[in-house]
Design a protein around this nucleic acid. Structure first.
Lengths: 222, 222
DNA sequence: TAGATTGTTAATCGATTAACAATC
DNA sequence: TAGATTGTTAATCGATTAACAATC
């Protein structure tokens, strides 16, 4: 098997780093909301760090990097940090999302009520099975050939792929062609996309396999 | 002058590192299976690397670290590497899994047919809602107070938490108490567990939020 | 003030990448 | 053989941690 001679590049590398940082910021946000609900209006880096399992230095470094400022001695004002994080994450906007594939995962996502609390909205689903089409529902389901139209009309840039592996790449291509710029992929393949499209993969099976390995490893070393 | 000591011991790697490595190994496995199905019986580090989006050096390093050997000039024998990875992941054993919470995600997992192909089996579900209980199904659903009994009788060590946030920690405690050592957690909280219990979190909302951030970041820098 | 906490700079650590010897 | 590819050691790079000055 001869491989192509084009030079190898790592377009994902820098992206991985941003992804990891922003994932931590999102965790901070969830944790801050929790403490706010418990009645606190200030929090120390130490407390936050302990809650999400990182070092206090990491928290301060992260906050500093994203220009989230605290108060020496009195810690961080929860509301202030939340406002900054929300601004950073553009939480004031409603983010429209489309979904391809109304199988088990797709159905679960359509029924999930928590998106709106986080300023996200599933605006439409798409499935090839006529039995799954719905018109006048909270979230309508259309045939796949209407996907491009909906994406363009609603100006959606985020898509979820929950279709079988065999058609995932094709659906991905259609999404990208119509204007989707970020894809959450549940299909167990690496999607090929242009460099300006971000893909995030979720695989329950992979996570379980990793978990099983870790657990057995743990037992061995006991 | 100080001379090197003869014994070489692997430095104790932290859990995050092992997790990341093993996730890559799992991806290699999926990719190797794909190429095997396409009729290839050998593969080069370069090909594999390109397919899953890492460097060829990374692939060779990973394989080397897990003692997976290739052949200079002829690359790696797919079947040989697959056998080694399967052994590493204990793929010859059937891994039993229990599931707490038959909500949207829980239902999707129960209906998912792909576990058995990867030597994993959902042996029971648990839900507090009497309407969701099932006795003589492929995957029976019991009330929560039977969880400890099932875990012990079936010797299950892996559990999935797909219950509401408010009861997640309590269910987690019950699982750990009964012998669960690895938890896949869909609840949006950091579970508190003893150090010998491994937790893997999945949050669709967090992934979507990160994706939205990355996508908007990308647009800005265009 | 004394003590606690932030925020930044420097040091460390370890994963990734580069280089290259081995060898098929 | 000549060329290609593996496998390992060394270099790099950058995230994490430590140290500590600033300051509330």
């Amino acid at each position: 098997m001869q491989h192509k001679t084009e030079t190898y590049t790592h377009p994902q590398k820098n992206r991985e780093m941003i992804k990891k940082n922003i994932q931590r910021i999102i965790q901070y946000r969830m944790c801050l909301l929790k403490f706010q609900n418990l009645g606190f209006d200030r929090i120390f880096s130490y407390t936050l760090a302990q809650e999400i399992g990182v070092s206090p230095e990491q928290v301060r470094k992260d906050f500093s990097q994203f220009n989230l400022r605290g108060n020496k001695k009195a810690g961080y004002k929860i509301q202030e940090i939340l406002d900054s994080i929300n601004e950073l994450l553009h939480k004031e906007d409603l983010h429209k999302i489309i979904l391809a594939g109304l199988g088990n995962i797709g159905k679960a996502l359509v029924q999930y009520k928590g998106f709106i609390n986080r300023n996200m909205q599933l605006v439409a689903g798409f499935d090839i099975d006529p039995a799954k089409l719905k018109k006048n529902c909270r979230i309508p389901v259309f045939p796949p050939d209407e996907m491009a139209r909906v994406i363009r009309e609603e100006k959606v840039v985020i898509g979820i792929i929950a279709v079988p592996e065999q058609v995932a790449q094709e659906i991905c291509n259609q999404m990208v062609e119509a204007g989707i710029r970020g894809i959450l992929n549940f299909a167990p393949i690496m999607l090929k996309t242009p460099p300006d499209v971000t893909v995030q993969n979720i695989s329950v099976c992979n996570e379980l396999e990793a978990l099983i390995y870790m657990t057995e490893k743990q037992e061995e070393t006991k």
